[in-house]
């Protein structure tokens, strides 16, 4: 790929990001819906179940929980990504995009761009919400921003998973049904709600190697929140895995998604 082409691919992706953001502006009720789920998680797990939950070492369960909720919100955003790509792929306007001299990847990178921007918005709301229930970052702003960066990196990777999913099941209704049973076990078998060392051995091992756990553990570490550490290699190298897993996912899934899109309806 020449520099010129790469330049246009970026520009076109950015233009498509703008298009997708305009869609969001035209249906703000959808955003409200998005925020309500994670806020509910904070309240339900923080207050209702939280009183009965243990945290390894010391510390408040709510402070343990919040980084997990941040990451979980990123995971559930995948459903929206998938169904919007499916909607897009089924729309007549795709024919128009295909007949324009624009980068082939732009429909997808534009989706990814818009979804990451939206994730940033969601994260801001969650952070405010977290501050209200007593969550704090304790190791300085620099580390906190790094944590946010890692969470967004995971979101980028999940966006591509969502895009591939949306292209494989090109029916928006099916997509939303499929995403929950995929996403729920992933959060359940992670360190989002419970520290892996409190789980039975083999479950703990699965949870420790879960890509979600890597980002959650890294974020806890960088925010200075409780519940870090553990004996497994994965838990010891949370930062490394929090970069490694998403990068691996992007490297594998993004090209598959682009190829799938190019083959679609041809």
């Amino acid at each position: 790929m020449t520099a010129g082409r790469l330049g246009w691919a970026i520009t076109d992706g950015w233009v498509m990001t703008g298009r997708n953001m305009r869609h969001v502006i035209r249906s703000p009720e959808e955003i409200v819906l998005y925020f309500s789920l994670p806020i509910m998680f904070v309240l339900v797990f923080g207050y209702v179940f939280g009183s009965g939950m243990a945290v390894p070492g010391d510390g408040s369960y709510r402070e343990f929980l919040l980084p997990g909720v941040f990451v979980m919100t990123m995971l559930y955003g995948l459903g929206a990504t998938a169904s919007q790509i499916a909607v897009d792929a089924g729309r007549g306007v795709v024919d128009r995009f295909r007949s324009l001299p624009m980068a082939r990847s732009a429909l997808l990178t534009g989706r990814a761009g818009a979804d990451v921007l939206r994730a940033l918005l969601e994260l801001s709301v969650l952070v405010v919400c977290g501050l209200l229930v007593g969550w704090r970052w304790r190791d300085g702003l620099g580390d906190a921003l790094l944590a946010v960066g890692l969470i967004l990196l995971l979101r980028v990777a999940l966006t591509w998973v969502g895009i591939l999913l949306g292209l494989l099941v090109p029916n928006p209704d099916t997509v939303s049904v499929i995403v929950f049973p995929l996403a729920f076990p992933l959060t359940a078998l992670s360190n989002v709600f419970v520290a892996p060392e409190l789980l039975p051995d083999w479950l703990g091992a699965v949870a420790a190697w879960n890509p979600l756990s890597a980002t959650v553990a890294a974020a806890r570490e960088l925010f200075g929140n409780p519940g870090i550490g553990g004996d497994s290699w994965a838990a010891q190298h949370a930062l490394l895995l929090a970069v490694g897993w998403p990068v691996l996912l992007i490297a594998v899934v993004a090209p598959l998604a682009v190829r799938r899109y190019q083959r679609l309806s041809r």
């Binding site: 246009w8 076109d12 233009v15 298009r19 729309r91 324009l100 001299p101 624009m102």
Partner: peptide, 20 residues
């Protein structure tokens, strides 16, 4: 083959930009 969510103007500007 137009974007039903966007306005007529937004559609044409979008396609113009995608034509660089």
């Amino acid at each position: 083959a137009v974007d039903e969510t966007l306005s007529g103007r937004q559609n044409l500007v979008l396609f113009g930009r995608l034509r660089h």
